[in-house]
């Protein structure tokens, strides 16, 4: 509805006084347009384009003089990014920064991504870490972990967590979670469970100590989802331990649900329902005969999906 119409109607119903209406009208006509989100999207899209271009360029024309200049310039740029952030940022705080500084956040992220690109190049060209690939992954993981806490940056923490997962042979980025991991391989499943439990536990421990409790969201998003996906992989592929994996999923979903309740996070509510529903449905159909499955199936899906819809419509009342 147009603001002018709203003000007019409220005035007619005596819900606003004449001077109030005038004041609101003046405010609305002078209200500036916020470009906050637009500029953020522009910033992150630009960082993405920049880093994608750099990623290709540093492997082109290796051994030429121009190439050395490029690598040198990138190192300087990375150092400048970190230097600027260290100089300009607010001092360390145990809690979330009260004043958000979008420019510093963007520069820090750019510095971290440049670090990844340069480190990858140095390993490729000079085999700095030789065959010790684990060290090469642990360095950015630890550096980003430190930087994320120092500068209160959850994006950098998620970079660190995905690097740690990569060290354990896993892909933890949510967009690639189900595509890049082979969840039929018991080694991957168990590594995923271990990494997931370790980092969620670490997140809980640090949050309880009052160290950046808001970071729990990122721990749960990256490590918690990895845990649930790994447990689901186990449920689908390792029949002999089915009940154990089912119990792990139930526990994980319950934790997500509890977090969703206490923190009002709807994403974790959604994730817990989706993982829980998938696991329950799989268990049910895996353990009944095919004939019964068809008849039961039509009723089950209708009734269960309707039940979930009903739950979503009413969860606010249920949570009270």
């Amino acid at each position: 509805m147009k603001t002018r119409t709203v003000i007019q109607e409220l005035l007619e119903k005596n819900l606003l006084s004449e001077p109030q209406a005038e004041q609101l009208q003046a405010y609305e006509s002078q209200k500036p347009v916020s470009l906050y989100y637009l500029l953020h999207i522009l910033l992150y899209a630009s960082v993405s384009a920049f880093i994608a271009g750099i990623g290709v360029l540093i492997y082109q024309n290796i051994d030429s003089i121009g190439h050395s200049v490029l690598i040198g310039a990138l190192c300087l740029l990375m150092l400048a990014c970190f230097g600027y952030v260290f100089q300009k940022s607010a001092p360390f705080q145990w809690q979330a920064f009260t004043d958000r500084q979008p420019i510093l956040e963007g520069i820090l992220l750019l510095g971290c991504l440049l670090f990844l690109a340069i480190e990858g190049y140095v390993q490729y060209q000079y085999q700095l870490f030789g065959e010790r690939y684990g060290v090469a992954v642990l360095i950015p993981a630890l550096l980003f972990f430190f930087l994320s806490y120092r500068f209160d940056h959850q994006g950098v923490l998620s970079l660190s967590l995905t690097a740690f997962a990569s060290w354990a042979g896993l892909t933890a980025a949510p967009s690639q979670l189900l595509v890049s991991n082979d969840f039929s391989d018991p080694v991957i499943i168990h590594a995923g469970l271990a990494v997931g439990v370790f980092f969620v536990a670490l997140g809980v421990f640090l949050a309880r100590k009052g160290i950046k409790p808001h970071f729990m969201y990122t721990y749960l998003l990256i490590a918690g989802t990895l845990f649930l996906a790994s447990a689901s992989g186990g449920l689908f592929t390792i029949d002999s331990w089915q009940l154990l994996y089912a119990a792990l999923i139930a526990g994980g979903c319950w934790y997500f649900y509890t977090y969703a309740r206490t923190h009002g996070s709807l994403l974790f509510l959604l994730l817990s329902v989706v993982f829980g529903y998938t696991a329950f449905t799989y268990l049910l159909f895996h353990n009944i005969s095919m004939d019964a499955g068809f008849f039961l199936g039509s009723f089950y899906f209708l009734a269960s999906a309707a039940g979930v819809v009903w739950f979503f419509l009413n969860f606010k009342k249920l949570l009270k």
Binding site: Y44, V47, S48, I51, A52, G55, V56, Y59, L109, L113, L116, A117, G120, Y121, Q123, Y124, Y133, G134, A136, V137, G155, V156, S158, L159, T162, A163, A165, S166, W167, A168, G169, L170, T171, A172, A173, P174, S175, Q176, V179, S180, N181, I222
Partner: peptide, 25 residues
């Protein structure tokens, strides 16, 4: 977005053998 950006970096790298997993994708 952060994890996606790091996958942009690792996608452009030649075979580096940084563990089987991947920073991003």
């Amino acid at each position: 977005v952060a994890t996606q950006l790091s996958s942009t970096v690792s996608d452009t790298q030649p075979d580096l053998r940084f563990g089987e997993g991947d920073f991003g994708g």
